[in-house]
Design a protein around this nucleic acid. Structure first.
Lengths: 211, 211
DNA sequence: CGCCACCCGTGACATTTGTCCTCCCGAACT
DNA sequence: AGTTCGGGAGGACAAATGTCACGGGTGGCG
C-alpha cells in the first residue's frame, strides 16, 4: 500500500495545518515554488487534519501546535496511528522545551520554530522525508534539562481550567468536581511547580510544556 | 527611479516589520512577487523601524503590533512625526477592538488581521497608498462600541503589573506604592470592567484595548 | 474661590484562595 | 497479601484578595 523510497519519483506531497490565514497562504505559496514540493491540502483547524490526511495521503504533514479544535500535537499522535507513512513536522511559534518533548512523544519527525529563516522550511521537509529527525540542537538541550511533567492528568486539567481568572467554583462546575477537590489539585500543582498561586503555576507549567 | 509613467512611476516601496522570521520572509517573498511592489527593508524589532524608514524612505510601512523593543503602535506614532509621507499599515494577529482604536489614534492608515487571506495583503498596500483607509468593517464597529477607556493611568499601571500571578506585594514593590493603594486600584479596575478578579479584569481591559 | 478628578494612603471587613490533614475507592505493582 | 499511586471528597485554618468608608494631597477649571 505504501511505496518504499526509491530515489524520488514524484514531488513531495505536503499537508499544511495552520490557523492564521495569511501565514498559511504564504507558506503554501512558498513551498509550492519549490520544484520538488507540492502542497496537496491546507487546513485551518486541528480536527480537520486526520480527515484531510486520509483523503490526500501526504508524505509530510506540517502542523502548527496552537490550532482550534484539536492541538497539533494531539493530531500528530492520531496521524501516527491512522495514517502511518505520513511523517509529521511540527511548526510552532513558541520554542517551549516541553512542546518539543511532547512532539517527540507524539511521534513527530521534526520540530521547527517560526522564528527561523524561511529557507529552513523546504530543507526541513526534505530532510524529514529522508528519514532524518530535524530539531534545533539548543532547543533539544533545553527540553532534556526540563524533565518530564510531574503533574497528574487531573492536576493538568484543573490548572488549564484556571486560566483567565476562573474562580474555584467555575473550575469545579466545568470539570464536575467538588470545590474542595479543585483546591486540592490546585495546591498540588502550585507545590509541584514551586510557585505561589495558580497564575504563576499555570505560567510555569506552560513554559515547561507540562500542560 | 528612471522610468516615468504618469499614474504609477515606480514600484511601491514597502518596509516590513515582523518579528517571526518565517512570517517575515514569507510575506516579503509574497509581496516581492507583485510586479508593482518592492520590499525595500525588513526589520524584526520595533526599535529598528524608524531608523530603517529614514534610511530607505518607504511609501508604506507594514507593522506588526507585538514586536520586541517598541510596539508597532508606538512605532507608528513615531513614524507619523519623523517620516511623514510614509503610510502605516498595521498587520496583527489579534483583531482586538482596542488595538484598532489605538492604531487609528497613532495615525495608521490601515489595519489588517493575519487571519485573512493572503490576497488581501497586496490589495491593502495599494489601497493605503492610494489614500484609502483599510479597515475590516466588523472590527470597526466593535471598536466603536467599546468606547474609550474609563481606567485612570494608575489603574492601568497596576492592572498591567498584575499579570502572570504577581501578588499585591509584588505590584506594590514594583510601582513603589502601598499595598492598600494597590488593592484599591485593583478593586476600582475590577469594578469598571465589570469583572470578578484581577485576571478577568486584565483580560477584559486588554480585549477592549484599555491597557 | 469652590468643585472635581486623580493620586495615595488607612483600617475594617467578608470572601476567596492556598495549605494541610483526614478519609474512601480502585488499579497496578511486588 | 501489602504497598503505592491516582482520583475524589471533607474540614479546619491562615493568608491573600476584594470591598467599602474614610482620610489626605495636588492640580485644573468654571
Amino acid at each position: 500500500m505504501t511505496d518504499q523510497t526509491p530515489p524520488r519519483t514524484h514531488p513531495v506531497r505536503v499537508l499544511l495545518a495552520e490557523d492564521q490565514g495569511m501565514m498559511r497562504g504564504a507558506l503554501a505559496l512558498l513551498l509550492g515554488m519549490e520544484a520538488d514540493i507540492e502542497v496537496v491540502a491546507q487546513v485551518a483547524a486541528g480536527d480537520e487534519i486526520v480527515a484531510a490526511a486520509l483523503a490526500h495521503r501526504p508524505d509530510v504533514a506540517l502542523l502548527d501546535i496552537e490550532l482550534p479544535g484539536l492541538s497539533g500535537l494531539d493530531a500528530a499522535a492520531e496521524l501516527r496511528e491512522r495514517v502511518p507513512g505520513c511523517r509529521v513536522l511540527i511548526l510552532t511559534t513558541f520554542g517551549r522545551p516541553g512542546y518539543l518533548r511532547r512532539a517527540m512523544e507524539a511521534g513527530a519527525a521534526g520540530f521547527l520554530v517560526k522564528d527561523g529563516p524561511v529557507e529552513e522550511l523546504a530543507g526541513a521537509v526534505r530532510r524529514v522525508l529522508a528519514g532524518e529527525t530535524v530539531v534545533d540542537p539548543a532547543l533539544a538541550a533545553a527540553a532534556l534539562s526540563a524533565g518530564p511533567s510531574p503533574l497528574t492528568g487531573r492536576e493538568c486539567d484543573v490548572l488549564r481550567a484556571s486560566a483567565d481568572g476562573a474562580t474555584v467554583a467555575d473550575i469545579a462546575a466545568a470539570l464536575h468536581l467538588s470545590e474542595s477537590t479543585v483546591r486540592n489539585y490546585l495546591s498540588a500543582a502550585i507545590g509541584k511547580t514551586g510557585t505561589r498561586n495558580r497564575a504563576e503555576a499555570l505560567r510555569a507549567a506552560r513554559q515547561r510544556g507540562w500542560v
